[in-house]
């Protein structure tokens, strides 16, 4: 069974820099973004990918207690989307 462990760990290590590259590109768009929706969209896509990456990393670190953080992150970025759209769309936040 050591073969599988070695294989998964090496695979995750190779994936690590590629994910970081993608996050950096998203961050550049989020900082540059000429309009508000651009920034939100970049943060949005980045955080969903981050949630996926956190799950992959918890396989890599072999610790199951790190899994719930991904669920929480995916849920709250949706909330951020909704707040900003509501702000742009309507006159009152509670309306």
């Amino acid at each position: 069974m050591a073969g599988i462990e070695q294989q998964v760990t090496t695979f995750t290590l190779i994936m690590f820099p590629i994910y970081i590259l993608a996050f950096t590109l998203y961050i550049i768009r989020a900082v540059k973004g000429p309009t508000i929706p651009d920034t939100v969209l970049a943060i949005d896509a980045m955080t969903y990918d981050l949630a996926a990456f956190l799950v992959i990393l918890s396989i890599f670190f072999r610790s199951p207690i790190l899994i719930p953080t991904a669920i929480v992150l995916a849920l709250w970025v949706y909330a951020l989307d909704v707040y900003v759209s509501k702000y742009l769309e309507s006159k009152e936040m509670g309306g």
């Binding site: 996926a52 719930p68 995916a74 909704v82």
Partner: peptide, 26 residues
């Protein structure tokens, strides 16, 4: 946990993009 996160993203991602696009247009 991974599967639950996947289902959540499958539901939430498109809805968030839709809300954003609609608000950006309007």
């Amino acid at each position: 946990g991974a599967l639950i996160t996947a289902v959540l993203i499958l539901i939430l991602g498109p809805a968030g993009s839709h809300a954003l696009a609609r608000a950006a247009y309007r």
